[in-house]
Amino acid sequence: MSDRVSVAKTYKLYLDGKFPRSESGRTYPVTDSAGGFLANASHASRKDVRDAVSAARKAFGGWSGATAYNRGQVLYRVAEVLEGRREQFAAEVAACEGVSTAESSAIVDAAVDRWVWYAGWTDKIASVLGAANPVAGPYFSFTVPEPTGVVGVLAPQSSSLLGLVSVLAPVVATGCTAVVVSSAERPLPAITLSEVLATADVPGGVVNVLTGRADELGPWLASHADVNAIDPTGASREARVDLAQRASNTVKRVLTVPADEPDWTRRPDISRLRRYLEAKTVWHPKGT
């Protein structure tokens, strides 16, 4: 190799479809698993959380109102672009998580498959979770699942890509919009994923990615009155009780998550999709 000087990067946040700096102006260095410098990442503050939530709220009407088929097409496109960046993701996962190239390639493949799996559910979940209810009266009663709203996602701290995809994809597949706080020590795959989302037809604001500390930003997400659900996966065990307490002041779904990060390579089920959906039951009068 030549002795070309490498470009040191300072990555930004992904907010409302744009890539702004943190409102606080803070950055922090990201290191690989051996402690070597990789890049600088923005260190998001509570005001970035606030901006991200309003962006997600603004995007919610359009995204939840899009047909399930259309959402599925957009998510398949995300998987395509994700696969196109396979090598970059593999290199970042290898650097951040300290795994071999073969292992990181397998992780990226699993992440693409996971995304496709959830994309496929967009137009099927209503048939599985919805129902035509048998009722004793002259009514046609049916139940449809509807997206709950803006979801705050504290992404897993150790599985930087597969874990992230496993918690984010179900949120957007249901029609919810997301504010994601990435892994603090391993944010690079999340940053690259936001570049994928920005170039893959996902409307701005549907996914907002903040790089920073989950334990700093989590409380603001949990207490925010305009957030409808929160996934505390990336929060430390001690912080989770506090998050649940703050969330209890508003009607907010708090996902029950295992104490330690689960094995993300395990085949998922639809439980995550179900938690981001509300059941709407309609009683429609029938003639005679």
Partner: peptide
């Protein structure tokens, strides 16, 4: 209130 409010309120 010390936390962000929302248009539902």
């Amino acid at each position: 209130d010390g936390h962000y409010s929302g248009p539902d309120y």
